[in-house]
């Protein structure tokens, strides 16, 4: 499980559920993800994440959870 945090957002990726379709990598507008050699999404630019959650909704395998952490 990859878990990366910036101040507002945590993204969990369940590697066992991920089928490496590449949707999250391709369709994130701010290019938060990059693929490893295997096609698994790696979270590379979390600070660019706008928390739109589209990657979670578009993941066909329920492998992504985008969570907002309240630091206050």
């Amino acid at each position: 499980m990859t878990k990366t945090e910036n101040k507002d957002v945590v993204i969990h990726i369940d590697e066992t559920l991920c089928k490496r379709c590449g949707f999250c990598i391709e369709f994130c507008n701010t290019k938060v993800y990059e693929a490893d050699q295997d096609g698994l999404p790696l979270i590379k630019n979390l600070d660019q994440c706008t928390n739109c959650r589209l990657c979670e909704l578009r993941c066909p395998d329920f492998a992504i959870k985008v969570e907002v952490v309240n630091n206050e």
Binding site: K19, L57, R58, C59, P60, D61, F62
Partner: peptide, 26 residues
């Protein structure tokens, strides 16, 4: 509404059925 314990889904990589299922349960 979604039966999480039934994961992983039976569908192929890149099959949109899971996306549709998420939209319905949402």
């Amino acid at each position: 509404y979604f039966k999480e314990e039934a994961l992983p889904l039976m569908w192929c990589a890149g099959c949109g059925n899971g996306i549709l299922l998420r939209a319905i349960t949402d």
